[in-house]
Nucleic acid binder design. Structure first.
Lengths: 308, 308
DNA sequence: AGAGGTTACGGGCAGCGTAAGGATC
DNA sequence: GATCCTTACGCTGCCCGTAACCTCT
């Protein structure tokens, strides 16, 4: 074992119980994994896996080596972040982002991340928070920016930004000058995030009235579509105005005063504390910075500064 | 830093404050060290040494990296001894041996060591214990088999064997049948180890008599020469009989009963607890085994078994 | 047949050693 | 001039990816 790469591939092979999955995880081919592990075994003079043509299984010695491999890789990550400059950070970061953030400061974050950590490749997924929570838990994502919190023991998280929700409508929709009552809102379809999300659920509770027919809530997983539907006067929408800042400024949409009082959308960065998360912590910190800078330049009423 | 070798070379360069000495220590050329350290600096994006054409000096970041390098290398040594088979142990072991041992079981030890650890190269030095103690202290030897003990804090040692000293003479020398008194011994020159050694000093004390002229003690650093001089009847010799077992069996030398009572020659294996000693511990254990086996097959009176 | 690991093979590149260069004492 | 590090250069050997192969379900 003259090379960290061998230990890394071995680690993933052990962790994922498969050479091919390890290859995929570590961006190489399956024969490369096979070869390196064979070389490791030759060098140590010890079998690390029992191969059964259908599957592999760690031997006793293999299990011992996994412990060491993990210690090595964590020590390496610590060393890189401690003594290396930012260019020393290498690898792929599998990032999951909720669409609200994708519509606000994500592009600035990507830009900034690339400038500060030029050797880190970001593998981006945009989806709703519940899905990303699941993917993070399964180890399929390294870092997520999502709504709400994550409760896994092996996971750390930190606040990054919070945006108030508001009722948004087309200026062409006649709503009068009074703030909208709950009853008034119920007259319109309300377009918002999908069923699985916090805003949908909170909205549902707020509009709930046993004496009335159920409110029409259109859950939509595409923010762009929500915006389009709002522009088309299908109804009101409940989204954070900061996500449609451009439309507001251009006067194509407007914020409608209403009696609705919903909690702010509070976003957190969450990442695993295991090996796969070693790039995530500094990236999460960078995201905090970017979000703060973005908020500072946004109109005050679009940002929930007190949350931070 | 994809490679342990880089960290190893960096470690030695830092430790020895010189690229060329590091190269020598690690069995490579000086440009190789230069190149690898330059590569490390490029990879980390950080200067590790200040180069002043005449000398090098660690930078702040360099000092931090040394800590990590040491942890890596110790972890690696631990891993190799823990999960690797004996063929996984590689490197050069700089072994210092006192001549008495060289004349007894050293060749068996070398043979055995090569069989068990085929990838370890032994770099052998034979000298008196005092010199080897010094070399070990300076870090110029990794493992020594010597008389007496070593008191450095960073050094570990263990008993390996103990041999009684005896007066040896040519059978042709007429000495009578009585055990030799101290006074009788003083009539002859006594040939033994050099002035700096324990046997010489103990002998001097034993023969000391203020009322008499000083005894003639011939300190000689070559055991072969001591034997030759004894065969030539220059005088008596004081050496452990086990070192001349063949001559005793062949009847060319004999053990002479005497009133001299000197402590046994107790040999220890000593090695540094720092990085350079990582091969030494298992080798010291192997030496214990070999010495024990050798003693078991030697005539009982030549061995001080109770010492172990 | 297909999933998963091994073996075979050709090409690229990293790292080594030799040798020459340059700076400082 | 001697010492010590750097740069240049050719070569070897390793490692990777493609592709063919094997084996078990």
């Amino acid at each position: 074992m003259t090379d960290f790469r061998s230990l890394e591939l071995f680690y993933w092979a052990a962790e994922l119980n498969s050479f091919s999955r390890a290859a995929e995880r570590a961006n190489t081919t399956q024969p490369a994994v096979s070869q390196r592990i064979a070389a490791l075994e030759a060098e140590l003079g010890v079998k690390l896996f029992d191969r059964n043509a259908r599957s592999i299984r760690l031997t006793h010695q293999g299990r011992k080596l996994v412990q060491y491999a993990e210690r090595f890789l964590m020590l390496r990550a610590e060393m890189l972040s401690e003594v290396g400059s930012t260019v020393a950070m290498r690898g792929v970061l599998r990032l999951g982002v909720s669409e609200t953030i994708a519509q606000t400061w994500l592009s600035r974050f990507i830009e900034r991340a690339h400038a500060v950590y030029p050797n880190i490749v970001i593998d981006l997924t945009v989806d709703v928070s519940s899905v990303m929570r699941e993917l993070l838990g399964r180890g399929d994502l390294d870092l997520v920016f999502l709504l709400g919190s994550v409760h896994e023991l092996t996971t750390a998280s930190c606040d990054i930004c919070a945006y108030p929700l508001a009722v948004i409508a087309s200026p062409d929709l006649e709503l009068g000058d009074e703030p909208l009552s709950i009853a008034r809102i119920r007259e319109f379809p309300v377009i918002t995030y999908p069923r699985t999300t916090a805003p949908y659920q909170r909205l549902r509770e707020a509009l709930y009235d046993p004496r009335q027919p159920p409110p029409r809530i259109f859950g939509n997983s595409s923010l762009t579509t929500i915006v389009q539907m709002t522009l088309d006067r299908i109804g009101l929408s409940l989204i954070p105005p900061i996500a449609v800042q451009k439309e507001l400024e251009a006067g194509r949409l407007r914020i409608v005063d209403s009696a609705l009082r919903l909690p702010d959308m509070a976003f957190k960065a969450a990442f695993s504390l295991t090996l796969s998360g070693s790039l995530a912590r500094p990236m999460a910190e960078l995201a905090q910075e970017v979000a703060r800078a973005y908020d500072a330049q946004a109109p005050a009423r679009l940002v929930a500064r007190d949350r931070l």
